[in-house]
Design a protein around this nucleic acid. Structure first.
Lengths: 202, 202
DNA sequence: TAAGATAGTAATAGATTACTCACTTTCGAA
DNA sequence: TTCGAAAGTGAGTAATCTATTACTATCTTA
């Protein structure tokens, strides 16, 4: 039990805050999450939050930072233990699916941040996160082309867009069904179609 | 100039309201659209809106109704003038892409509605819209399998999910770039990969 | 043109939001 | 054990949101 004691050191409290936001995002529209709701989830008064974060945006920023670290680290680790680019892509895909199954609110938060007008810091963090993610995909896709595993005429840019869209589609499907478990269940079949679309003819 | 005169009959005013919401959704997070912003866009005072809609949710409901009619009608028409299931799928895809290019806020609104907790009427309308859309895709995909145009082992359910995800991915990409035109530009290449993934080997 | 119906205004109520601050409680080191 | 610093409380504020209402302007039609 990490979150049960009343007084927590500042860094642990900040970590608990991020966790609370990620949890809440799984249950409701992320842009409707209030500081009151966050505090309530933590068993805290609303004012206490502002002792650890100067503003609500700073909280979101911390969440984005958390997501970036965790997601990219897990994805990189998954890609490491593979023997071919296509195997790596599949590992990355499944790892990403695992991540959003554990934290269904995260992809919605990212999508929501991207919709905000203007140039907020959390929004910029999402942009760079997806940019880094895209670079990894590019690398794997190019490698796959180079060694003949992927179709020689493949449009790498389009393939990267579709990779992310595939995940987004699964997220949407889980929203429709109201059950997160659908994501994991449907992921293999959906990825199989994607792979067929990019692989070279055997 | 349809929206410039001060007094409008109720049905025209309602139509203008829907148009204003669709426009606003293209520029900002749909769930952050206020009745004040809607009224301002129409050159109206905020209170006037509630003479035509009992509640804000009723406005959203009207928007969803508008989307359902327009999108399904256009998509059906596009599928009609085709000679094969795959051609129909491509026509549906491109028509859908045209639609979201003209109204970039619409897919974001749908996605946003799906995220609301509980069972609101607008949310339910989105669910049935996508359900109807999915049925059309199912029909086309099954037809394609039956006549050998599509892979015999194709998972139709997964293919339908990926079809919608493909569009969602393009929408996300346009959010990242900040330019709507990217959707139309990248759509053909992305669909080509999708088609390759579902077609039978030649 | 007079009058009833329709549409819009301006002010405001009531709820909710992010954020502040004076005060209290708890922790940890001397 | 004591005491200063760190963490939390709870009451408040200003801004903003949806929705209401008494009143006014405009259209339509007889």
């Amino acid at each position: 039990m990490s979150g049960h004691s009343k007084h927590l050191p500042a860094d642990e409290r900040r970590a608990a805050t991020v966790e609370a936001v990620v949890d809440l995002a799984a249950e409701q529209n992320p842009s409707d999450i209030t500081t009151t709701a966050i505090a309530q989830r933590m068993g805290l008064t609303q004012g206490a939050l502002f002792r650890h974060f100067p503003t609500k945006d700073a909280i979101l920023q911390a969440v984005m930072s958390w997501v970036t670290e965790r997601l990219l680290a897990r994805v990189d680790k998954a890609a490491e233990g593979t023997t071919s680019p296509v195997a790596a892509l599949e590992a990355v895909f499944m790892t990403h699916i695992d991540f959003v199954s554990e934290h269904p609110g995260v992809p919605r938060m990212l999508f929501g941040e991207l919709q905000r007008p203007g140039e907020t810091l959390p929004k910029r963090m999402v942009q760079t996160l997806i940019q880094h993610y895209g670079e990894r995909l590019h690398r794997l896709l190019e490698a796959g082309k180079a060694q003949g595993e992927l179709d020689a005429g493949l449009d790498v840019e389009a393939a990267a867009v579709l990779f992310i869209g595939t995940i987004q589609g699964l997220v949407m499907q889980s929203l429709l069904a109201g059950k997160v478990c659908r994501i994991r269940r449907d992921a293999p079949a959906v990825f199989a179609i994607y792979r067929r679309g990019i692989e070279s003819n055997t």
